[in-house]
Structures are given as structure tokens and as C-alpha cells.
């Protein structure tokens, strides 16, 4: 994992200050994405399997307890049933989701569950820093990160300060994120831009650039709690920022994580295709690409089942996560 750490760089406003983004043109390209490339049959199955490995299987609810968290952890480590793997002629080893993703208070439960079931090193992501709104004192937000890391989180999804972003205090955003990165220590940091609250595509680009400069290992669209979450339009803007940052640094160290509203296997394939077309093949692995999703896995299971058998299974035939 060490090779995928973004070292960040000095804050430099000139890299984003005058960015020009035309929504209608971006929207046309976004709507084009799903029709310019297609995968069918065997390829489709392969793409769906790839998508499984990129999922951050998530539960972020007030009523989370060790019971559902441990279910989720086991599902994350074994996303596809033995039956299905057999039907697909696949050796199950190697197919697991990218990570589980839980609130800081559930990290400990997740870690225990994973250790119990023999996956002590399975990645645990945790949303920290006053998720989803970030409206708590910086001190406590940083403390959340440290606590989650101490409990065993290997990936931290932070939220950026939208108050700073909307008032144009990009240096403020940078400084906070940089401190968060320090707090993460060895854990990977994903920065959630909460794009649905940033008002303009230009702000999304700016937030992307600022986070990458501050050391984000991933930039992530949304918490899943905003009105508008992961859309292809927003994604294209963030992806362009990643491309520009790569041009600047020459290293492919920043990944992309769309989250919120991604539910179908078909959508998952379009997302992967977008990564492949806009950034290149290496951005389709879970080192540089993740889905933040909870329902997606179920649909993929059903599609794979259909691919293997020719008929659509009832939801109850798919093991619960």
C-alpha cells in the first residue's frame, strides 16, 4: 500500500483559481458515457466481479450494533456465495469487497468480527470528522480520526469543511485536511467533498484540487446524505482534477470514490468504463477506485446469478449482508 500514498504539496491557488467548467458540455459528455461503451456476457460478468472488489460495503446508521456490523463484515469478506462462485467456475479466494465502511464507534466491533472470522487484516474504513456535516470543532474531528485509527481503521473517510469552501476560504480547507492527513497516520485518507452542497462544478474542481494538495489518497463525491450524490457529471469534474493533478506530480496516487445512489450492476459497469476511458486501466482497481455503496452488491449478485444460470433469482436466494 505504501506506493499509493499521496504526499501532497504546498497550497497553490493558481492551480485552481481560474478553472473553467461548463456544466451543459460536461452533462453532454456524462450522458454519452453510458452509450459509447458496452460490456456483454462474459465481459459483463468480469466487470461485475471487478466492481465487487471495489465496493466499500457500508453501513452508516444510528441503529448499527455489533450484530449487523459483524454480518456486514463477513459479507464484505465473502461477498459472493459458494454456490454462485461454483456456478461461475471461480475459485472464491481473492474475491472480496474493497473494505467495510462504518462509523468510528463501530470500528472496534468490525475489527473483532473480522478477527473472529479469520480476516484480521481486512481493510476497515471509517467515516470520521463529524460525518456527514463536519460541523463540530476541529479538535474533536481530529480526535475522531485518531480514535478510529487506534481501534483498527485502515482507511478514514473525512468530510471537508463546506463553510470554508462556500465562503472561498480554500486555504482554510487545505489546512484542516492537512491536519486530518497527519492524524490519519498510516491510514489512507479519503476526502468527501459533499459535492451536492458545493453549489457549482467549479467549486467541486477547486475542492478536489485542494484536497489532493493536502494529501488526499482518494477524493470522494458525497456522504450519501446530501440531496445530490454521485452523478456522472460531478464525477467527470473530479476525474479531470485527478488527471490534472497527475500531470502536475507525475504519480498516480489519488483514487476516486463515488458514493451514494449507486445501486445497479449496469451503473457499476458505466462507472468502471468511465475510469478506464478518462483515467486509464490502473484506475479500475480497488487501489484507485472504490464504490461507496450498500445495495449495489445485491444487484451484482443477482446479475451474476442470471449470467450463470439464465434466470433471475429471488432476493431471498441471495445471502443477506
Amino acid at each position: 500500500m505504501e506506493d499509493h500514498r499521496n504526499q501532497g504539496r504546498e497550497f497553490d491557488e493558481s492551480l485552481f483559481k481560474d478553472v473553467k467548467i461548463n456544466l451543459s458540455a460536461v452533462a453532454r459528455r456524462a450522458s454519452d458515457l453510458g452509450s459509447r461503451r458496452a460490456v456483454k456476457k462474459q465481459q459483463q460478468a468480469a466487470w461485475e466481479l471487478r466492481a465487487v472488489t471495489c465496493i466499500d460495503l457500508t453501513t452508516l446508521a444510528g441503529d448499527d450494533t455489533p450484530a449487523n456490523v459483524s454480518r456486514l463484515c463477513f459479507k464484505a469478506a465473502h461477498p459472493l456465495s459458494q454456490d454462485l462462485l461454483k456456478l461461475l467456475h471461480i475459485n472464491g479466494a481473492g474475491i472480496s469487497t474493497g473494505a467495510v465502511c462504518v462509523y468510528p464507534n463501530q470500528v472496534k466491533a468490525a475489527k473483532e468480527a473480522l478477527v473472529r472470522s479469520g480476516y484480521p487484516n481486512f481493510p476497515i474504513a471509517s467515516v470520521a470528522t463529524g460525518f456527514p456535516c463536519g460541523q463540530t470543532p476541529l479538535k474533536s474531528r481530529l480526535a475522531e480520526i485518531r480514535s478510529a485509527v487506534a481501534d483498527g481503521a485502515t482507511e478514514i473517510d473525512i468530510v471537508i469543511n463546506r463553510t470554508y469552501a462556500l465562503t472561498g476560504d480554500w486555504k482554510g480547507v487545505y489546512d484542516e485536511v492537512k491536519q486530518m492527513k497527519d492524524a490519519c497516520g498510516a491510514a489512507h485518507m479519503k476526502t468527501i467533498l459533499a459535492t451536492g452542497e458545493l453549489g457549482s462544478l467549479r467549486n467541486i474542481y477547486k475542492a478536489s484540487m485542494v484536497c489532493m494538495m493536502a494529501g488526499a489518497d482518494f477524493i470522494k463525491t458525497s456522504t450519501g446524505k446530501e440531496g445530490v450524490n454521485a452523478t456522472f457529471i460531478v464525477a467527470l469534474v473530479m476525474i479531470r482534477a485527478i488527471r490534472d493533478y497527475y500531470r502536475l506530480t507525475g504519480v498516480k496516487v489519488v483514487g476516486f470514490k463515488p458514493a451514494g445512489g449507486i445501486r445497479t450492476a449496469k451503473d457499476a459497469c458505466v462507472w468502471l468504463s468511465m475510469m478506464k476511458e478518462e483515467l486509464g486501466d490502473e484506475y479500475t482497481s480497488n487501489k484507485l477506485f472504490r464504490f461507496g455503496a450498500s445495495a449495489l452488491l445485491g444487484d451484482i449478485e443477482r446479475q451474476l446469478y442470471h449470467y450463470a444460470t439464465g434466470y433471475y433469482p429471488a432476493i431471498t436466494e441471495m445471502p443477506m449482508g
Binding site: R37, A38, V39, K40, K41, Q42, Q43, A45, A46, W47, L49, R50, L87, L88, H89, I90, N91, G94, I95, L272, S273, K276, D281, T284, L304, Y307, A308
Partner: peptide, 16 residues
């Protein structure tokens, strides 16, 4: 799935 299987091309994200 008959002759081919998805496992073969797990690592290959080509469009086909």
C-alpha cells in the same frame, strides 16, 4: 456458462 468462464478474465477489464 459453458466453455469460457468469468474467472478467466477476472483480471482483464477489456470490453470484448
Amino acid at each position: 456458462v459453458t466453455d469460457g468462464n468469468a474467472g478467466h478474465i477476472l483480471g482483464d477489464l477489456s470490453y470484448g
